[in-house]
Design a protein around this nucleic acid. Structure first.
Lengths: 226, 226
DNA sequence: TAAGTTAACGTTAACGCAGGGTTAATGATA
DNA sequence: TATCATTAACCCTGCGTTAACGTTAACTTA
């Protein structure tokens, strides 16, 4: 389910557009002005933003700039009136993925959104998925930990495990759940095998003592970061 | 320098558009019909295709289908007449990144192309250039590796494989993906065949120990340079 | 509550085997 | 027939597992 942030001040138009998008299996948050949009954007995760250019309080372009500041990954498109060439140019220069002239056909809008989402997904997969872990950088795609520019190669399972820990950082991870999720079962031997891996990870991370893998006896462990 | 394949039958329009794009530092191949376009596309690498919908011999959509068949990565946009809603829908369904209504402003076209290229920023090798690989020079066109002026002839598959590795240098290449991309399937025998090729490439590149083909057991390999 | 016992991890080393590395033989294609 | 890709055969290494032993915490019993 893709999440769309729709920013449109016209009530009738916004309402019908929201409904139409929802019909096409999108989850839509509809903000009536730029301020409301920003609030939503900083709180939730969106896959794409659809911005009207003409907005009260905060115009579409300024809004786009702020959005890009917060998260430059998120694609956005403008809704613009016909004949407003300057608008189009300004929007495109900001890096808009598209602009759509009002009035437009709703089904065409949906198709365009689909294509943009398809494209951005491709970029996301190939591009930056390198996350910082303390003083390290973790590159799941390339299976390595980077510290001071030095690359520590990781095996498949090490990578999966670190990713899992990272996804559950600072929460109590139940031993049983981790085992079932990664080893497929939680018998004695898998458990011991996991202990070996955890031990190895502790070594990898020992250069940064803010990174801790703490076990909770009989329950599980926590991967704690700042 | 980005390479554009422009497909447009109207001579005056095509000519002026080509010039305009060239002014903006694009390298443009202008094909007057679909057949010519396909010939160019299968011979050279392009970063983006700009297709007129109305074409003699082979219409824009059928052309796009064939282009996607050859290389689904390349983004393309349609030039379409206003009011032709059916055209737009068909094009977008094919996965077009954009459609542009005639008449259009040339500067807006350029901005749109820029944005699309930015999004699909994959390192494309230009087939018409000899690329350096460490102390070697790799000439994909003439199927050879040059070291100290000595030419090592390469077979078709060796060339394709080196090209593939070069395109994905310094990233983890999944065994399965490479096999599917080059051998068409990833069964046991194709895998073994690939191993033989990799082994041969290691020999070719052994004069430069900054060039490494490192395997990641159970996952794939990395072609690391510099 | 101290001492003995047991269970739950920590750590290191040894093991076994699939996944590649390599070379040679065999097919395929022009 | 020569050239290149595929298959076969053999070897070796790296990875995940298992084992062995150490440590610490919880539980038991007197």
């Amino acid at each position: 389910m893709k999440h769309i942030l729709l920013v449109e001040d016209d009530f009738d138009f916004g309402s019908i557009l929201k409904q139409y998008l929802e019909l096409h299996q999108y989850q839509v948050i509809w903000a009536k002005d730029g301020k409301e949009a920003l609030k939503n954007f900083s709180e939730k995760q969106f896959d794409i933003c659809v911005l009207d250019v003409m907005l009260p309080k905060l115009d579409g372009f300024t809004l786009a700039e702020k959005i890009v500041e917060i998260n430059p990954e998120v694609p956005f498109v403008f809704l613009t009136a016909k004949k407003m060439k300057q608008d189009k140019i300004r929007g495109l220069k900001l890096g808009a993925d598209d602009y759509i002239e009002k009035p437009f056909e709703a089904d065409i809008l949906v198709l365009r959104l689909q294509n943009i989402l398809k494209r951005s997904q491709r970029v996301k997969i190939t591009n930056d998925r390198i996350v910082p872990i303390g003083v390290y950088k973790f590159d799941a795609i390339n299976h390595c930990l980077i510290y001071n520019g030095q690359r520590q190669k990781l095996t498949e399972k090490e990578t999966i495990l670190i990713q899992y820990l990272y996804d559950h950082k600072n929460t109590l991870i139940k031993r049983e759940e981790l085992l079932k999720d990664i080893w497929g079962n939680d018998d004695f031997f898998s458990g011991r095998s996991m202990d070996v891996f955890i031990s190895r990870l502790r070594k990898y991370f020992k250069r940064d003592n803010t990174i801790k893998i703490e076990s909770v006896r009989g329950v599980g462990l926590t991967f704690s970061l700042e």
